[in-house]
Amino acid sequence: MGTTHIGTGETKSAKTKTTTARVLSYIFLGFVTLISLFPLYLLLINSTRSHIEINAGFSMLPSMNLPLNFQKAAAGGGLWAGLLNSFIVATASSLLSCYFSAMTAYGIHVYDFKLKKFAFTFIMVIMMIPTQISAVGFVELVYKFGLDNTFLPLIVPSIAAPAVFFYMKQYVESSLPLEVIEAARVDGSNEFRTFNTIALPMMKPAIAVQLIFAFTSSWNNFFIPALILNKPENKTVPILISTLRTNVASGGASADWGMVYMTILIAIIPVVIVYIFVSKHIVQGVALGAVKG
């Protein structure tokens, strides 16, 4: 934009100025890249170093003890159980929240009904209410019905995910023409079939982005799971991390640090790997949805 007239009129000093500004910008970008990646780099390096090596001194270079740390972290099987629990909860809740959010967005977009406007406004308002606010009543309800130490209260509520709905609604408004649905009706398709076989495939890009967001937020969720899961075999990964922290004395001298770094690495690696492959869509998704996680 505007390069033609700037290009011809640019003086030598203006050019130097631009070059300086560009160099400074890259230095700044290098700095923020360092801030974002360096802690993770140290994590990666230290997961390959044994407890003795870590205690011996600081190093920027990896060692050979990744398998040793892995064995120690996996010992006792608690971590495997935690990973499996987290995986079950995150998979089920992300699938449910995406399917039913898409369904709700479709319902409000496609049909005309009396409470349509109210339903939409209602969801927009509840989107602002933090989940912690209703935690007291939620936890009481869970214990009253004996659902503590089950995954049900972590999975089923994902059906009502206002932020996911909002993203889907914006998507169907821009990319789901009502003519397509009319055409399906003419062909004799019933409403559910139209949604499942015609609308849902057309919403794939939005669903893919939201599946990742929903999976990640469930995988990382700590507050509510910690309140309702207290048997060792039911714990999810963030709860295991918090147990690890409680077990390490505040000075930190008593821990096996190779094992600690390894556990942290295992906790975050699934999300990081998925992110590396689909980052482009995720970053676009943040800009489009403009919704905080």
Binding site: V32, S36, W219, N220, I241, R245, V272, S279, V283, V286
Partner: peptide
Amino acid sequence: VIYMPNLIMAAAFAMLFFA
């Protein structure tokens, strides 16, 4: 790169900083 830390488990991030 700068968006990535947003997706990392806050609990794990905190434990890493403690380490």
